[in-house]
Structure formats: C-alpha cells, structure tokens
Computed example of a mutant assay.
Amino acid sequence: MNADLVVAAARLWLGTPYRHQAATLGAGCDCLGLLRGVWRTLYGDEPMVVPPYRADIRDPAHAGALRAEAERFLVPVSGELAVGQVLLFRLNGMAEAKHCGILVGSDRFIHAQERLGVVEASLTEAWARRVSGRFGFPAAR
C-alpha cells in the first residue's frame, strides 16, 4: 500500500478521543480502533468483526491476539523502519504486543493513548525498544 495514503488516513484521526473498543473518527477509538479506521479508509470495510476485549493489558485471555490478527490481515516486514508501517509494541515488560500505532515519519508515529486520544508522538528510544513487530497494509484486499 502506498505509504502516503496510509499516513494521510492515519492523520485524519488526530485529536480523536480515546474510547476503549471504539473505532469512530472524531468520536473515539483505541489503538486497534485507529487501525480499523485506517483500514476502512484504505479498503472500504473491515476484514472481520472484532470480538470484545478487555482494556486491561494483563488480560491473559487475549495474549498474542494482536500479533495473530496482524499476521492474518497485514504483511510482515523486515529491514529498516519505513513510513506507513504498523508497529506492534510490548508494554510494561510483557512478552506479547498489547499496543499498536502507525509510523508516519522516520521517528514519528500515530497511536491512540488513554487520556490523550489519537496523537502523533516521537518514536523515542524507549518506544523503539518496545517494538515487537512491524507490518504493512496489503497492496489490495
């Protein structure tokens, strides 16, 4: 998928409030909701109905689910970081990815964060250490 299209779609969401399990532009979303909304902009509809999930990142019932679905619907990438990639992050020393965002510059990414909503942030060394997977949006669906 064209990186400029991915970045433009992600930037539409800036300022959207944080809402767990939501994916509504301007009204609310969480990190997965941001990806779902960008997907809809790029392809027209979502590839699946997302089952309910808990906000607690320590929820063992969904360990590995974010990576599994990324592997199912997105394209794994290797090599250098590239604009337009979906980044999966481990949080709080957890083994499994529980957060995601979209790289929009060489050191900038967009993600949905509690209390902040959808923001563009610096990919600091601390964030970069937490990256546990990188994916691209498919060329066509």
Rank of each mutant, 00 (worst) to 15 (best):
N2A: 06
D4Y: 07
L5E: 13
A8Y: 06
A9S: 14
L12M: 13
W13R: 12
R19L: 13
R19G: 02
A22I: 00
A23R: 12
T24A: 13
L25G: 01
G26K: 08
G28F: 10
G28M: 10
C31H: 07
C31S: 13
G33R: 13
G37D: 06
W39Q: 10
R40D: 03
Y43R: 09
G44E: 07
D45Y: 11
D45T: 11
P52G: 04
Y53G: 03
D56A: 14
I57C: 06
I57V: 14
D59Q: 05
D59N: 09
G64A: 02
A68L: 05
E69P: 00
E71R: 11
L74A: 07
P76I: 02
G79M: 00
G79P: 00
E80P: 02
V83S: 00
V83T: 13
F89Y: 15
N92F: 04
A95F: 03
H99P: 04
C100N: 06
G101H: 05
G101V: 09
I102N: 08
R108G: 07
Q113R: 15
E114F: 13
E114M: 15
V118C: 06
V119Y: 11
E125H: 13
E125N: 14
V131S: 04
R134A: 11
R134I: 12
G136Y: 03
G136D: 15
P138N: 12
P138W: 13
R141C: 07
R141S: 11
